[in-house]
Design a protein around this nucleic acid. Structure first.
Lengths: 244, 244
DNA sequence: TAACAATATGTCATTACGACACAATAAAAT
DNA sequence: ATTTTATTGTGTCGTAATGACATATTGTTA
């Protein structure tokens, strides 16, 4: 492992949200040896931006390109690196010259990502023995400040859902209104009225209603929708209205 | 100047907004020698967070404590450091051993700050000959990517004004409704209806109406208001409603 | 003391929102 | 085949929020 390709001092941590079976999921890695859980993350190569780094890392962890990714916070407590018990133990033992590098102070750029659960293939990295989806409310304590990062990502997502569109890259290309609603309910952690939800969602003009319906469910076939990408992107830039 | 106290690779740039005479202002520094304009910024000491760094830097540039500060974006183009013509010229000349340090790749954490124009005392730093307020729409091109940073800060501020309270630390402790409205109009760049503005603003419950009025203007004396800090902070956390 | 200029406040029509009910239909049960 | 069941599509109604607008009020200045 050639550490010289990476910038010093800067790392990236990603909170990858997925959505399945009415539950909000987050992608976690289980470390080799210490068996502690972490967020997927990594370092920034000398020639890439932090966004490229996050994109590269998530491609490795999920197999996906074109992930919705958003910087949401920098985590820079000077003591945060020392909160990693695995590294500090290893450093103390003087086992490996690389450990000095890992023991340096890192400032971590927090990203959150929204991905299509059904398409992502969780894949561990060099340091981890497995990668898997966990329900958002069944997450064990994570190393360092990763629990904090997860919590802040969720907070940010819940705030942003009020003024920015959500769902592209988190749902399949074609989806039903009940599926979209479930996504909102899951992120917000509360039930919404079916009829009022649809009315408001349609008023944003970011959906195209398709002529097809989704058969196979045991009941009345719901219509399929897709995002109107042009308007969706406008809404990402300018918000969903409701302000001044 | 002892550079060893700073972290490598990480810097902080601050977009400091002020508000005076109905105009939105931004604090800029004019560099020595090259006379180019920059945003106030600096490096992160080895024992401080990026927030502490920004707070320290702004205290130096304005004399103010307790500034409203918000991280809004990391700027990490690998080429951005090389876009500083002053440094690259100096590096090429081999003039000063410190220059290697300045020429390294920096990732910059962008903050925006909202300050009380009347209380801030613009103060240049080691690299600059003067510090001054400029009208937001009369800013000359800035070094490196600072024009981009300024533009992104303004965008962020305009989006956030729709779902978060604004004004504390930007207005005097006691202010009138027309002053608050002017602030909103300035940030948003458009006129608002006086009566509707007041009605909506009061509905947020973040203002205390004071019994006093502000005399001295050439007309009917407007009432003074102050922010209700408790509710203001709640609103910062949870937004102003209007979502789901 | 009258004119002025800006402020305080109220009304009305329109729109958005929350709560709610009933008709339609795909699949499964009979 | 027919009925049952669960879920979706759609509409209404009362209330609250919003946008447009007019009139009364009051420090200052002429």
């Amino acid at each position: 492992m050639d550490l010289s390709v990476y910038m010093n001092s800067v790392s990236v941590d990603c909170v990858v949200f997925g959505f399945n079976n009415g539950l909000m999921k987050v992608l976690l890695l289980k470390m080799k040896y210490t068996h502690e859980w972490t967020l997927p993350g990594g370092f920034v190569r000398k020639e890439e931006t932090v966004e490229s780094a996050a994109t590269r890392i998530l491609k490795e962890r999920t197999g996906l390109d074109n992930i919705f990714l958003k910087q949401f916070r920098v985590f820079s407590e000077p003591e945060r690196s020392k909160m990693n018990p695995a590294v500090s133990d290893l450093v103390a033992s003087g086992a490996n010259p690389d450990l000095d590098w890992f023991a340096q102070r890192f400032i971590s750029i927090g990203f959150y990502a929204l991905v299509d659960f059904t398409k992502a293939v969780p894949t561990p990295d060099y340091f981890s023995e497995k990668a898997e989806w966990r329900n958002i409310d069944e997450v064990d304590p994570l190393i360092i400040d990763h629990s904090l990062i997860l919590q802040k990502a969720l907070n940010t997502l819940r705030l942003q859902i009020s003024y920015q569109p959500i769902g592209y890259n988190l749902l399949p290309d074609k989806f039903t209104m009940p599926e979209l609603q479930k996504l909102y309910e899951t992120i917000l952690g509360k039930k919404l009225d079916r009829r009022n939800f649809q009315r408001r969602m349609l008023s944003f003009n970011i959906l195209n209603k398709l002529p097809e319906t989704k058969k196979g469910g045991a009941h009345k076939a719901p219509f399929l929708y897709e995002f109107n990408l042009e308007n969706y992107k406008k809404a990402l830039e300018n918000g969903l209205g409701g302000g001044w």
